[in-house]
Structure formats: structure tokens, C-alpha cells
Design a protein around this nucleic acid. Structure first.
Length: 191
DNA sequence: AGGAAGATCTACT
DNA sequence: GTAGATCTTCCTA
């Protein structure tokens, strides 16, 4: 039985957490179904030193979770889509990891109903796409992903893969560091 | 009331 | 592959 990842897992550098979240299982509990996908692409975001971060302009109502307990879902809107992040940072720091893509493993029929697409690989290969397919919205903001009882949980997994990294996508002013991580050769990574 | 957004889709070359 | 429109949600005034 693979356990949910603990709070301690998220109480580290955002880039470290982003890299290590690859290959883990994202589980979504709905009324009548159970959805699951393997995390295949992530990005790390920081605080006041990161112009691309939601936290860059200081603490606001909508972004204050980035200052709070690691291991909680942090969800915000971009255009017409929801972005799913997990709060991740060292003690008294700021940060989060954006989940950019997953590989669907369970409840694929339900995902397809939530987000009808022709091609299998396009079901969850983008941050706005996977939230649609997994029925993730603002109502899950602040939910701990560390609890087995949560509507959304991230659990450990044991799989082997090669990790790739690059600069973040769609970011106007990116940092020097490469903060996007993905599973090499995985077909569900976004373009 | 107005505008911006860490994206996506569509309609093309 | 790439440009342009999108018409939601929540912020800031």
C-alpha cells in the first residue's frame, strides 16, 4: 500500500519538491468515481525573488496560501482555466509547485466525459486541461493533499524514469534556473 | 467597472 | 508549427 506523501515532503525547496513529485500518483475522489493519474510534469515557483510567481507582488487574499502550511492545494484561475498547485517551501519561506501534466491511469472514462477530446494524449497534457479532466476547481483550494480522506491526495509511487528539465513555459520574465521538470519521453507531457 | 492572466483552441500558412 | 481570439474569474480601483 503506497502512502500519501507527508507534510515533510513538501517542507523543502520548491524545485526539489517539483522534481520529486514526478512519477507520484495524483488521486481525485468524486461522488461516484475515483480518478488517478501519474504526475509527469511540474514547475516550481518562489516568492518575492520570482517575477513569474503569484507571490511576487506580495501577500494578497488569493495567494496567501503560498505563505502557509506546505502540502495543501493552492488553486487559482488563469483565463478560463484552473491551475492546480501544491504549497511547497521551507519553514517561513514562500513557494508552490504547479502540476502541469499527468498521465491518466484510473477513471479515464470519467475524465473523457469532463473533457471530451479526440486524442488520448491530449486529455491531461496541460495545467488547465488536467484540472478540467479531474474536475478540480476553486472549491479544493486549501485542501491538504497529505490526507487519505481528502478529495484530492498525492501518494507515493515506485516507478523508474529519466528526469528532464527546462525553463518554465509561458513565463514572461523567467529566472536563470531551470524550474520545469518532466518525465523524459512521456507522451503526456505538455507541448 | 475595467483589466490582466503561469492557457487553450481554432484556423490557418 | 504558429498567430490570434478567447469571453472566465478574480483582482484592483
Amino acid at each position: 500500500m503506497l502512502e500519501p506523501l507527508s507534510e515533510r515532503f513538501y517542507e523543502r525547496e520548491p524545485a526539489v519538491v517539483a522534481r520529486e513529485l514526478l512519477g507520484k500518483r495524483l488521486m481525485r475522489r468524486l461522488e461516484n468515481s475515483f480518478l488517478e493519474g501519474i504526475i509527469v510534469e511540474t514547475e516550481a515557483y518562489y516568492g518575492s525573488a520570482d517575477p513569474a510567481s503569484r507571490a511576487y507582488h506580495g501577500i494578497k487574499d488569493y495567494n496567501r496560501l503560498m505563505w502557509k502550511e506546505p502540502g495543501r492545494a493552492f488553486i487559482y484561475n488563469v483565463h478560463k482555466y484552473w491551475m492546480f498547485n501544491v504549497v511547497a517551501h521551507k519553514l517561513n519561506k514562500i513557494g508552490a509547485v504547479l502540476i502541469r501534466a499527468v498521465e491518466p491511469t484510473k477513471g479515464i472514462d470519467v475524465m473523457k466525459r469532463n473533457r471530451p477530446v479526440m486524442k488520448r494524449f491530449e486529455l491531461t497534457n496541460g495545467p488547465g486541461k488536467l484540472t478540467k479532466a479531474l474536475a478540480i476547481d476553486k472549491s479544493l483550494n486549501g485542501v491538504p493533499v497529505t490526507s487519505r480522506e481528502s478529495k484530492i491526495t498525492i501518494a507515493d509511487n515506485k516507478i523508474k524514469f529519466e528526469t528532464g528539465s527546462s525553463h518554465r513555459i509561458g513565463v514572461k520574465k523567467d529566472l536563470e534556473r531551470k524550474l520545469r521538470f518532466y518525465i523524459k519521453d512521456n507522451k503526456f507531457v505538455s507541448k
